Each structure stands twice: as structure tokens, then as C-alpha cells.
Lab assay of single mutants.
Amino acid sequence: MEVRTIKVFTTVDNINLHTQVVDMSMTYGQQFGPTYLDGADVTKIKPHNSHEGKTFYVLPNDDTLRVEAFEYYHTTDPSFLGRYMSALNHTKKWKYPQVNGLTSIKWADNNCYLATALLTLQQIELKFNPPALQDAYYRARAGEAANFCALILAYCNKTVGELGDVRETMSYLFQHANLDSCKRVLNVVCKTCGQQQTTLKGVEAVMYMGTLSYEQFKKGVQIPCTCGKQATKYLVQQESPFVMMSAPPAQYELKHGTFTCASEYTGNYQCGHYKHITSKETLYCIDGALLTKSSEYKGPITDVFYKENSYTTTIK
């Protein structure tokens, strides 16, 4: 009895394709271990004539594949690729409408935090270190965002349907971005203890939790000093293409032309909904596939993004 075979390709990165001759009487799992086709788990399936010449994702289970996976995804987590594939199996079914010149995501599976993050990423200057993220990001900007969303979920250790947080998501993504040249110098002034300067680099240099107003941050924000008295913390120097200011959701007025974009969060910790506000020729609110415009805006804002380049204080 002759062994019926077909020729397929296996890959971990969709760049390096490895030619395989597979036995049609055995499952993919018996031949390769966990195997995925377009995100779908085909591990328990036997090869079919229609699979001839198709590319299958496999887990990096030998040295060659491990090197290829690390170079593309910059992670050695053995569960990463499987999590990416199972997320992709959902995100490829989502709709990605162009809204006001940006790629958004039609609401499904509690994905409003991903839509808000995706919209924000198209408006701030950011370059990702893992080629996987950078490639998928370019495709997302062009309207094909399924891979990018699935990668975000995998890097953030999230599953489809789980509630997510924009600030946490951005923080994970910033860790995989090139923020080497970003720098922030802060000064804390206390009447009792004097003053202390701190220099922050990388992710810490672009994120701040405690106030939404970048102007206020430049002037000074009140913080408790270690001595128990009130101290003032203010920005001395900022070198970065953008800054992200966050605070627990509270009524906040966004003035046209003073910011790049913002995240609105309605609801409580267990259950809520994100919308995205962007400042173009007027203010726009993007909620999944829905767009509304207004000249002014007041609502429960939790993150505001500002364009920056270089700032030095005039406070002496």
C-alpha cells in the first residue's frame, strides 16, 4: 500500500517557510505537534488534498525554529505562539472599519479597549522592536488589523473576551517599542525636605499616572512627601515624541487643539466601556464603527496623549 502524501510549508514567522512532505494517514499533531492554519487549530486533523502548498504555523520545537521565533517575536515564552494563534482565530472574524481616516474595530468580545489602543497607536510616533509587531502594525494602518490585535493580546497575556485596560495595554506595548531616546527629568520640591531631581528613561519617561493635564504637570502637581507634608512635583525636561497622561476616570474637559487623542471610560472596574476622542479640525468621538463630532467635550476621561518633541522648564 502506497503512502499518500502532500507537500506543505511549516513556519513560526510566515517569513521562513520549511518544506514538509506530510503523510495523509496521520494527523498534523502526530507529525508536527500543535499546528495552526489561519489561526485555526488543526492539530487533530489529517492532511487533505486542499492543504497542498498551504502554510501551517507550528510551535518552535527545534533550534532553527526557536531562533526564527525569537528573532521575529522577541520572546522565548513557549506558550506565546499558541496564544497568538488562538487569538487570531477570533480577531480574523472582527470587522476593521476605516473611521475618520483611522483603522478602528467594530465592537465584539469586549474589544473596546483594543480599538482605543489601536486608534491611539496610529496617532503617536512609535516604532516597535519585534519585527512581528512592526509588520502587523503597518498592515493594521492599511486596514488589516487582525494579526496586530492578536499579537497585542498575546504580548499582554490576554484572551479574547476578557476586559482590558488601555493604560495597561499601552504599557505592555511600550515595553516592546523603541523608547531608548526618551528621557524625563522631574523635580520634587518640599518646604521641609528641599528639592530632589529624578531622571527617568524609556517607558517611565512617557507615562504618568495622577493627572490628565500635561500643562498642569509642567506647572506642578501636589504629591505627598515622605515627611508627610505636601510637596510639588513638576516637569523639568521632556525628550520624547509623545507623552501619555493618565488618571482614574473623572469628568474632564478636553479643549480642541490642546491634545492629540484621549480615552474615555464609562462604567466601573468590573464592567465598563471605552471610547476614543481625537482632536482634528474639530473633536471626534470614535466608538467602534461609530463616529460623532463636537466642538467641545466633557466626560469621564482616563488617558490623554500629547505630541511632544523637546521641553525644558522655565521655572527657576
Rank of each mutant, 00 (worst) to 15 (best):
R167V: 00
S104Q: 03
K93V: 09
H48Y: 12
A146F: 05
A289D: 14
K229E: 15
L17M: 10
M24T: 14
N110C: 01
Y96E: 08
Y172W: 12
T258W: 04
K280H: 10
T91H: 04
C182V: 04
S171L: 09
Q196I: 10
E162Y: 03
T192I: 15
K201H: 11
Y155V: 02
Y172D: 09
N16W: 06
Y155D: 01
F242P: 01
T55G: 06
C182M: 00
Y265H: 00
G39L: 08
Q238K: 02
A150C: 01
Y274L: 00
T232G: 02
Y57E: 05
Y84D: 03
K95V: 11
Q237Y: 14
L118H: 01
H176R: 10
F80Q: 04
K54N: 14
E264S: 08
T43W: 07
A146T: 05
G39C: 15
T258F: 07
V206T: 04
L114W: 06
F305C: 01
D135K: 11
L65K: 14
G194E: 00
D303K: 01
P248G: 04
K93L: 09
Q195F: 11
S213L: 05
R139C: 11
A40G: 13
K95W: 07
K280G: 11
L88R: 05
A108H: 04
L119Y: 01
V21K: 14
V67A: 11
Y36G: 05
D23F: 11
L235H: 02
L17Y: 09
A177S: 09
L235P: 04
K158S: 05
T103M: 05
E204P: 13
L153K: 05
A289T: 10
T19R: 12
D13S: 06
P34I: 06
Q31N: 13
T91S: 05
T199L: 07
S246N: 01
A250I: 10
N16I: 10
T75M: 08
G299V: 06
P97S: 07
Q122N: 03
K191V: 15
K293P: 12
L17E: 10
S263G: 01
C193L: 02
R141H: 09
G272D: 01
G220I: 02
C190N: 04
T169R: 02
P47H: 02
A250V: 10
E168P: 04
P130T: 09
F217N: 03
D135T: 09
T116S: 08
G257P: 01
A205M: 00
G164Q: 04
P248I: 07
L65H: 07
L81E: 07
A136Q: 11
S181C: 13
K183N: 07
L121T: 11
C261F: 00
L59D: 15
Q31P: 05
W94D: 05
G101F: 02
P60L: 05
E296W: 13
T302C: 08
V22R: 04
V243S: 01
L179R: 01
